[in-house]
Amino acid sequence: MIRVDDLTVSFGRGDARFVAVNQASFDVAANSAFGLVGESGSGKSTLLRALCGLVPVESGTFDLESDKKPQMVFQDPFGSLHPRQTVDQALREPLLIHGVSDQEPRIHQIMENVGLSPTLRFRYPHQLSGGQRQRVAIARALVLEPDILLLDEPTSALDVSVQAEILNLFKDLKEQRNLTYIMVSHDLAVVSFLCDAIAVMKDGRIVEQLSRDRFAAQDAIDPYTNSLFQAYQ
């Protein structure tokens, strides 16, 4: 189980200090998916980056209860792959860093798991479609077999037909690999489809947490959550 307590992240000092995440607390059950929704500037992506150490935490604590580093899948499949590295290099790099010996079978296996044809193995990112790139990014995140996957708007740059394929893939991988997800998105329907519990963020604060059932039924108390539902209509 993931436990986040009073997590605060800020940038700058003095008058220029900006609190991006303000005392966020939530729990995520193992092998479940937790959604963070909110508009741009709500701090949802910063919170996600703080959980994997890409952004320093100012105060508060979090416990991921995993000895493996969480990995992340990013929004823009153009920007999340090194433009001069082939698929093979991208997937091999984490194995090289950790000195894993059986690289060949692992690369084969993970490509198959995320639905990438072996013929794509030596292609560069610019020779792949958006959906294929996102699959490579997912494969790269999973090749070290983490317990936790952080998803930062992983389908918002994709066409809806491709989004459906990637969302299905996330569902399958979660069961197959016993993964726990924390997903950030501005798309309420996407979060509702994948997540078991959802937190709504505004101006760095979590204003409300809802179970998936209540979220799907638009059964919210907070006026801001309700305004999001309103805009979704």
């Binding site: 980056r49 994997c52 150490g53 890409l54 580093k69 969480p70 990995q71 992340m72 990013f74 929004q75 823009d76 920007g79 999340s80 792959l81 090194h82 433009p83 001069r84 790099e93 984490p94 860093i97 950790h98 990014a137 790269r140 995140a141 070290l144």
Partner: peptide
């Protein structure tokens, strides 16, 4: 600033490895 650098940082790559294998080639 790119996401692919964030991704290798998450994998636990050292600064030297990131600079010489990922930044320099670009």
């Amino acid at each position: 600033q790119s996401d692919f650098i964030a991704a290798v940082r998450l994998m636990g790559a050292s600064d030297a490895r990131i600079i010489f294998r990922h930044v320099v080639p670009l």
